[in-house]
Design a protein around this nucleic acid. Structure first.
Lengths: 185, 185
DNA sequence: GCCTGAAAGCTAATGCAATTAGCCTGCGGG
DNA sequence: CCCGCAGGCTAATTGCATTAGCTTTCAGGC
């Protein structure tokens, strides 16, 4: 394989830097090519098109999140696991807001697969609550919704008031953990 | 004012139809112009550029949501008000998924203003819980995060399993209402 | 050490959307 | 009846995605 200065992975890496530094809207093949020091059409030797690059990027970010969260939950259970999970998730998005935004706007295909790991981690974190199977499904959905909504709004700067966002997230965490322990209706 | 077949409002209306029928990605000046039966540059007589159209659209959608939710909460209080608020929000997004997605990707400026009404409605709905001022702020943020996250994931088709989404939303609603009644830590 | 084929890059060309500049015209108020 | 201008138009520019087809480099076989 000649002249392997670029590769699929390198291209995705450069794309990550673009969204990190200039935001998801700046992710163009031209921008990536410029960073690679290469003409735009050359990228087509590594990715099918912009849509595929977006998908690869999304899948990469999703994997990264799953890994972080998986690590955070390791060896913990119950409220402690939930707390660690939510903290790790938020922390990732605060560190890479551009990546998270870029992730959510790509179509599902490859992302769904990478997302399954995250869902698995969430199920594992909930195991000690002793929920039924379908109870876990609902619980995971609620957890996911709450965290996803919060980190998105935080990243968008949608919380203007001076109150501490840490306190808010703490409250959200408690709502979830308490809700999981609450009796079935 | 001659030939007033188009107006700022008409243009926004056509843009709404575009995102409703073809999704937020299809919102281009060309698409709007085509529906208006007019050449693309003519739109510049009504909106400054595509960015402004997006902003107007976002503000419009935000107002629409606030109005719906405001109506839903009218005359209710406590858990009932919260329940109605969340139901109305989700219902709006299910009816117009394209609009909601289009709304969130525009920059803040005009949207923030329209969003304040929504925040006001949420504060009003929470009044009967007897929270402190800053307690209300945190509560509103949690409510907003949870609902926003859920409707976004639902609209994106991110919930693949067969379990009832209505049940999940019911659980989420209960987590919020219960969390508001819970003692301070 | 030379030859070859495919990988990886390049240039040229097409098409579409945004945006700008400048022209044309219908029509409401005088 | 005339004038001004709002509102529409065409032409032209720019930037990005994508395709086609050419060129170069280098890994291996001879």
């Amino acid at each position: 394989m000649p002249r392997a200065s670029l590769s699929r992975e390198t291209v995705v890496g450069l794309a990550l830097r673009v969204v990190d530094e200039e935001g998801p809207a700046a992710l163009t093949l031209s921008a990536v090519a410029a960073r690679a020091g290469v003409a735009t059409p050359s990228l087509y030797k590594h990715v099918r098109n912009l849509a595929e690059l977006r998908e690869l990027l999304s899948a990469h970010v999703m994997s990264e999140i799953s890994a972080r969260i998986g690590d955070a939950v390791l060896g913990r259970s119950g409220d402690e696991a939930l707390h660690a999970l939510m903290a790790a998730w938020r922390s990732y998005v605060r560190t890479h807001p551009g990546r998270y935004e870029a992730m959510i706007q790509s179509p599902q295909p490859g992302v769904a697969e990478a997302g399954e790991r995250l869902v698995d981690v969430m199920f594992a974190a909930l195991r000690s609550y002793g929920l039924t199977d379908s109870g876990s499904v609902h619980a995971v959905r609620c957890l996911r919704s709450a965290v996803h909504g919060f980190v998105l709004l935080e990243a968008a700067g949608a919380f203007g008031l001076p109150e501490s966002l840490d306190d808010t997230y703490e409250l959200l965490t408690r709502m979830i953990t308490a809700g999981l322990r609450a009796p079935r209706p």
